[in-house]
Design a binder for these strands. Structure first.
Length: 430
RNA sequence: GUGGGGGUAGCUCAGCCGGCAGAGCACCGGGUUGUGGCCCCGGAGGCCGCGGGUUCGAAUCCCGUCCCUCACCCCA
C-alpha cells in the first residue's frame, strides 16, 4: 500500500489522436453504421473484414511509395520475427490484397464488398482528423465500365441524403496509364518554367508528384496553378468517354455534381474517376467521403488486372456534420421497489421481463423511491413498475407511464402482456 | 514537421494589477412515512497540468516542461 502511493500516477488519458466513444454518442454512431450497412446491402454489397494491420509492403506498393501517407503517416512496427507490419491507414489496399489471396475473381465478377472499421494515420490531430478513425466504404471490383463508378457514387449520395447531410459531390478524372504520363510531363515542364511563382513545397512536389501542386492552397502558387495545363485537355479518348458517360449516368440518376479539374487525391492508385463529397460548412477538413477508380491496384499486388472503383466515408466527419439518425424515444421499463420485501420481487419481475425480451432495469444502490424514480426518468425509460407493500399484499403491480404521466393497477398475471402492449406504442424500446 | 490559442470541480468557464479557490450545469440528499421532469433548501466534489524560481505570501509574476486544441502540410 505504502509503496503504491509512491508510484507515479498513470496517465489516465487516451493516446493523442484517439478518443473514447461514450454512451449517448456511441448509440448514435451505432445507428449511423447500421443505416449505412443496410444501405450497402440494399445495393448488393456484402461485408468483408480484413486485418487492422498488414505487411508494410501492401500499403507501400498499393498506396504508393511517394505519397504522404506512406512517407510519414503510417504506424509501422516490427513483429518478433523482424517483419515490418503497418496499421492500416486505409482499407482498399487490404481488401485488394485479400482479393488476390483468396482468388476472389474466381467467384464471379464483379465482386462487391463493404467494410467498416478503424484506420490509423500518424498525423497531428485536429478537428475531424484523428490518429485512429473509422471508415465505412465499398469496393466494386472487376468492372471497367462507368456504370460501376456511377453506382458507387450514387450509393454514397444516397447515404448522405438519408441522413439529411448536405454533401456536395465534386468529380474529376486523373487519366489513365495511356494519357497521364504525358500530361504529367507537360505539367512538370510548365511548372519548371514557372518555378519562380511557386512556394517551396511545390518546388519539391513538382519533382516527385507534380499533380499535387494543383492542390496547393498557398496564395503564391494560385496564379501559376490557374494558368496550368488542365488534365481535362490532355485525356485520351478512352478517359474522355468514360468521364462523359459517368456524367450522363449521374445526371440520369438525379445526382448533382461539380467538376473540378484540380481535385487530385493523395493515393497513387487512382485512375480516371476521382471524387469527394464535401461539406462546405465543416471547415478545413471538409471531405466527408472520397473515392475513385483504381484499375491497376489488384495487379500491383500480384493479381490479375481487375478494374475497380470504391469510396470510403469518414465516420467521425459525418458525425460532425450533424446527421439525422432519428430521435431517441423513451422505451423499456424500470422496476421500483419500496421496502425490503419488495426488492426480491422487483428483481424477479425484472428478470421475467428481460427474459421476455423487454428492456428492464432496477435500482442497484438501495435508494429511496424518489431516487429510483429520478433514475428511471434520467435513463429514458418509458414505463415504471412500482412494487410496495400495497402491491405485494394485493397481488398487483402499479404501472406508471413517464411520458403520459398516467398510472394504473394491473393484476400480476396480466402484467407482462400489458407492458408489451404499452411499449409497442412507444415504438422500439431502449 | 511548422505556427496560433489554451490547461482552475465531472462539464463549460470566471478569478490572473500577488493576500482564505468561485459560478452555472451535472451529481447526491431533503422539501413529499411510496411517485420523475419544474421549483426551493442543503451537501459532496480541487496536486489551480507538472517541475523549478521570485516573494513574508503565487491559481495569479518569471523560466522550463508536458498535454490539449485550432490551423498549415496532407487527408476520411
Amino acid at each position: 500500500m505504502r509503496e503504491e502511493e509512491k508510484r507515479p500516477r498513470i496517465e489516465a488519458r487516451a493516446p493523442k489522436g484517439t478518443m473514447d466513444i461514450l454512451p449517448p454518442e456511441s448509440a448514435k454512431r451505432r445507428k449511423l453504421v447500421e443505416k449505412a450497412t443496410s444501405l450497402f446491402n440494399a445495393y448488393g454489397y456484402r461485408e468483408i473484414e480484413t486485418p487492422a494491420f498488414e505487411h508494410t509492403e501492401v500499403f507501400a506498393r498499393g498506396i504508393g511509395e511517394g505519397t504522404d501517407i506512406v512517407q510519414k503517416e503510417m504506424f509501422t512496427f516490427l513483429d518478433k520475427g523482424g517483419r515490418s507490419l503497418t496499421l492500416r491507414p486505409e482499407a482498399t489496399a487490404g481488401v485488394a490484397r485479400a482479393f488476390v489471396q483468396h482468388r476472389l475473381d474466381t467467384r464471379g465478377l464483379p465482386a462487391k464488398f463493404y467494410y467498416q472499421g478503424p484506420m490509423f494515420r500518424h498525423e497531428r490531430p485536429q478537428a475531424g482528423r484523428l490518429r485512429q478513425f473509422s471508415q465505412l466504404g465499398v469496393e466494386l471490383m472487376g468492372s471497367p465500365l462507368p456504370v460501376a463508378d456511377g453506382e458507387v457514387i450514387a450509393l454514397c449520395a444516397a447515404f448522405f441524403a438519408s441522413l439529411g447531410v448536405k454533401a456536395e459531390l465534386v468529380i474529376n478524372s486523373v487519366g489513365d496509364q495511356e494519357c497521364r504520363p504525358a500530361y504529367v510531363e507537360t505539367l512538370r515542364a510548365y511548372l519548371e518554367e514557372n518555378r519562380e511563382g511557386l512556394c517551396e513545397d511545390c518546388r519539391r512536389r513538382m519533382v516527385d508528384n507534380p499533380l499535387r501542386v494543383l492542390d496547393c492552397k498557398v496564395d503564391k502558387c494560385s496564379s501559376v496553378i490557374e494558368r496550368a495545363p488542365e488534365i481535362r485537355d490532355h485525356l485520351c479518348s478512352g478517359c474522355v468517354e468514360h468521364q462523359a458517360m459517368l456524367e450522363r449516368l449521374l445526371a440520369a440518376a438525379g445526382v448533382s455534381f461539380r467538376r473540378d479539374g484540380r481535385l487530385v487525391r493523395g493515393l497513387d492508385y487512382y485512375t480516371r474517376t476521382v471524387f469527394e463529397f464535401q461539406d462546405p460548412e465543416l471547415g478545413a477538413k471538409n471531405a466527408l467521403a472520397a473515392g475513385g477508380r483504381y484499375d491497376h491496384l489488384v495487379e500491383e499486388l500480384g493479381g490479375k488486372p481487375t478494374p475497380s472503383v470504391g469510396f470510403s466515408i469518414g465516420l467521425e466527419r459525418v458525425m460532425l456534420a450533424g446527421p439525422d439518425v432519428g430521435d431517441d424515444r423513451r422505451g423499456g421499463i424500470y422496476v421500483i421497489a419500496i421496502g425490503e420485501a419488495a426488492r426480491m420481487k422487483a428483481f424477479t419481475l425484472a428478470q421475467g421481463l428481460r427474459g421476455a425480451g423487454v428492456c428492464a432495469d432496477l435500482d442497484h444502490l438501495g435508494r429511496s423511491p424518489k431516487a429510483q424514480m429520478r433514475e428511471a426518468d434520467r435513463e429514458g425509460f418509458r414505463l415504471v413498475a412500482i412494487l410496495g407493500e400495497e402491491e405485494l399484499a394485493g397481488g398487483f403491480v402499479t404501472l406508471r407511464d413517464l411520458e403520459g404521466g398516467w398510472q394504473e393497477r394491473l393484476e400480476e398475471s396480466r402484467f407482462l402482456e400489458a407492458v408489451e402492449e404499452r411499449l409497442r406504442y412507444a415504438s422500439g424500446g431502449a
